[in-house]
């Protein structure tokens, strides 16, 4: 029950008005919704499904570690620049106790080698973590190896770090 003189809408408005009269125009109608009632909550539609985060829970335990020259598969992960420039390329490979997450997120598992964080650790499903060393300079006779979720290292660091002996390289 409105009309407007806006030129772009006037013809359509006239039609609407004509239809209302043809149908027997009722008197002023009050809204079924009280004018002083709150706006509806934002129509969010169905909430999106929640992503399963259980694989990121708790500490990140590891079961084995080995250090060796990268295989062709590992060289692809390390990248051509590393392969070209590394003096004595080595890959650190660690097996995790539980399978790694199956979704790609921003947080990721990292290796802690003698406490140093390797932020560019690769996660190779189902349960392998891989980091690369260009030479032996960071390898001591006896080395501590652990893993953690980046950004939450203190709470997620392996409760039982592993030990790796330099003498075991390549084994």
């Amino acid at each position: 029950m409105w009309m407007t003189s806006n030129s772009r809408g006037s013809r359509r408005a006239g039609l609407v008005l004509a239809c209302l009269f043809a149908a027997g125009c009722p008197g002023p109608q009050v809204s079924a919704v009280a004018p002083d009632s709150p706006a509806p909550a934002t129509p969010a539609g169905p909430r999106p499904g929640t992503v399963d985060s259980s694989a990121y829970a708790g500490t990140l335990e590891i079961t084995s570690v080995r250090v060796r020259r990268p295989t062709p598969e590992l060289e692809r992960l390390a990248g051509p620049d590393f392969v070209k420039t590394a003096q004595e390329p080595l890959a650190i490979e660690v097996q995790t106790q539980k399978p790694l997450p199956t979704d790609a997120r921003n947080t990721s598992a990292i290796l802690l080698w003698n406490g140093e964080r390797f932020t560019d650790t690769w996660s190779v499903r189902p349960n392998r973590l891989v980091a690369f060393l260009p030479d032996r300079s960071k390898i001591k006779d006896v080395n501590s190896v652990a893993a953690a979720w980046i950004g939450n290292e203190e709470a997620s660091r392996s409760r039982t770090p592993l030990t790796f002996r330099a003498a075991d390289i390549g084994k």
Partner: peptide, 17 residues
């Protein structure tokens, strides 16, 4: 006026505080 709207006043039926 570039636009004019006319509409009625209806009796109060809904609650108010």
């Amino acid at each position: 006026p570039e636009s004019i709207i006319r509409f009625p006043v209806a009796p109060r039926r809904n609650p108010a505080v």
